[in-house]
Amino acid sequence: MIPLEWFLCLSAILFVIGAVGVLTKRNAIIVLMCVELMLNAANINFVAFSSYTGGLTGQVFAVFAIAIAAAEVAVGLAIVMTLYKARDTVNVDEVKLLRW
């Protein structure tokens, strides 16, 4: 059996890749995809702990998280679409109207 630590290491690596992507990438679509990476890192943790402790709660929670992630992507992509229509760009650095 694969020890729990390996799963945790994998999810940590995935989470950090996602976080760095969110913070550094300029393309709004890639930012959205990196958010997905972070969510899935969390899902791995849920499932790993669920199998490790023997309960089903973690797996149910992961399914919920996947559903919510799908909804979030739908909304996020819609925003990116309208943004592109209005401003002709999907670069997040150029979208900074709401400031002092």
Binding site: A19, V22, L23, T24, V31, V92, D93, V95, K96, L97, L98, R99, W100
Partner: peptide
């Protein structure tokens, strides 16, 4: 303090992280 709000979502996210 108002210069902290520069309109860049990624800056806010960095601060949160």
């Amino acid at each position: 303090l108002r210069f902290v709000q520069n309109g860049l979502v990624q800056t806010y996210a960095s601060i949160v992280v």
